Each structure stands twice: as structure tokens, then as C-alpha cells.
Computed example of a mutant assay.
Amino acid sequence: MTAFTALVLAGSRGEPDALTAYAGVSHKGLIELSGRTLLERVVTALSDAGASHIGVSTADAAIADLLGKIKVAATIEALPASPSPSLSVRQGAEALGLPVLVTTVDHALLQPEWVIRFLADVPEQTDVAALLAPEAAVHAAAPETQRSYMRFADGRYSGCNLFYLRNARALNVIDLWRRIESYRKQPWKIAAMLGPGMLLGYLMGRLTLDQAVARLGAKAGVTATAVRTPYGLAAVDVDKPADLDLVRQIAG
């Protein structure tokens, strides 16, 4: 295994939500699954995959305190989280250095082999890469799960909350992400920013996944790649109570 640096996003909105209320905890990273918190499971999987340095972006004191109790080979440190996930990624990447692998604390089933395979499959010339799972792989691994899918000419895919930022150019994607976040209640501005040709191509199902990702990367001035994973469970995170019930069933 080649050593790498990882960033775990463990921010929160600062108020209880349906998931944490259902689990009886103050932060989703504190949810226990098979006797371990989600935070410990994610950090351990990254360390076992070869991470030598792991930063956890959080504003939660309980999460920061728990980091000191997790025993792994990697060096772990708490980093300040921002209200915006994209800004937390930028600040975390700048603090840790590049390249960096990014994931989330609710990636409850994360396995070392998923991470190792993803990193091995990222092309050398790519500035930024994202892991996605084909719908068929997700359904085969977890038929009960309700995931969100993006539809392309070559099929439907679900995001896997694993990203790779190779260099400083990759941060341009974060800037684009922040602009999209700021327009989330004004979709016409997002459409104008991305361009009518790309939007129309997507809505009509004419763009393949690779074409769409390449065009988004071009908008940000980077080379972007979508990496497909055969591991359908990589698309299963914990956003709502039904997700938690599912991962508890899978994990036993």
C-alpha cells in the first residue's frame, strides 16, 4: 500500500436532526454500529487502507475528544470545520497538504479495499476524481437501499462520498462547488453558470458520465475523472433513520 493523506468531513448544522434524534446522540459520528462509532469505523478503515495522516474536520467537542481515544497507525488530528462543506474541504486540504483523499464521517460501511481500489484506479493525469457506483452494483449489494441516482446516457450512478484531490488546481473544483451551493435556491443561476448546452444534454440523457464529469472539470479549469466502483455498498451512507437501520442489518 502507498501511504496517503485523508480528510474526514464531520461537520454538523449545530442542531439535532431526525437521524441523531433517532440514534440518541448529539452527532452522527457518535452513532454506534457493531460496537464502534461511525467516526472510529471510518478512521480505522482509512488507516488500514494506508493513510498515514488523517484530518477530521469538525466543530463538535465530543468528536474532537473521541479522536484522542481511537488507536490506529495513522496520525490523527482535529481540524476546524466551516459552515459550508466545500469550504471545510478547501481549508482541510490546505491544512493537510495535497494530494488528499476526502470522505465523510457517515460512510458507515467504508472498507479499506474500496479505498485502495479507488486510489489505484485514479488516472495519473487527473487533478480531481470522484468515486461512483453503477445502479446495478448498488441494487445487487443492498436491494433495500433508497439512494439518489444521477442519470446519464450510459446508465444511472450514485455517489460514494470518496474524492481525490491531487494538486492545487483541484481546489478550483471546490470554488465551483461553493458557487453551486450559494445558488442552491436559485436553480436558474446554476443552469446559467453551467451553460445551456450542458444542462440540456444532461436533461435529455445525451451525456455519458465521463462526458459530464469532463465538462464540469473544464468549467473549473481542471482534469476531472469519474471512477466507477464494483462495490455497491460504497454508495450507502447514513443520512436518515432508514439508512441506519439498513447498515445495522448489513453489519450484523
Rank of each mutant, 00 (worst) to 15 (best):
F4K: 13
T5G: 09
T5A: 14
A6Y: 06
V8P: 07
L9M: 09
S12A: 14
G14H: 04
E15Y: 00
D17I: 00
A18R: 15
T20Q: 05
Y22D: 15
G24K: 09
S26R: 13
H27G: 10
L33S: 06
G35Q: 01
R36I: 00
L39R: 00
E40L: 01
V43I: 14
V43N: 06
L46M: 04
D48H: 13
A49P: 12
G50T: 10
I54F: 05
I54E: 04
G55A: 08
V56Y: 05
V56R: 01
T58H: 07
T58S: 12
A61M: 08
A61C: 10
A62H: 13
A64P: 08
L66T: 14
L67G: 06
L67T: 12
K71H: 09
V72F: 08
A73P: 06
T75D: 14
I76D: 11
A78W: 05
L79R: 08
P80Y: 02
S82C: 10
S84W: 01
S86G: 14
S88C: 01
S88H: 00
E94V: 04
E94H: 02
G97K: 01
G97H: 08
P99R: 04
V100W: 08
V100M: 03
T103A: 04
T104G: 00
L110P: 02
E113I: 00
E113V: 01
I116Y: 01
V122M: 09
T126F: 01
A129N: 02
P134A: 00
A137T: 05
H139S: 15
A141V: 07
P143Q: 11
P143K: 06
Q146S: 11
S148A: 13
S148Q: 13
F152I: 10
S158M: 09
S158F: 12
G159C: 08
C160Y: 03
F163C: 01
N167A: 11
R169T: 09
A170H: 04
N172T: 07
V173P: 01
I174S: 05
D175P: 07
W177M: 14
W177P: 06
E181V: 08
E181T: 06
R184Y: 12
R184T: 15
K185Q: 13
K185E: 15
K185W: 07
Q186L: 08
P187Q: 11
W188S: 11
A192C: 10
A192G: 13
A192P: 05
G195E: 09
P196L: 08
G197S: 14
Y202Q: 14
L203H: 12
G205Q: 11
T208R: 15
L209F: 04
Q211D: 13
V213P: 12
A214I: 03
V222L: 03
V222T: 09
T223A: 05
T223Y: 00
A224F: 05
T229G: 13
Y231H: 15
Y231M: 12
G232I: 01
L233T: 02
L233N: 00
V236T: 03
V236I: 14
D239W: 11
D239F: 05
P241T: 02
A242G: 06
D243F: 06
L244V: 00
D245P: 00
I250S: 10
I250W: 14
A251T: 00
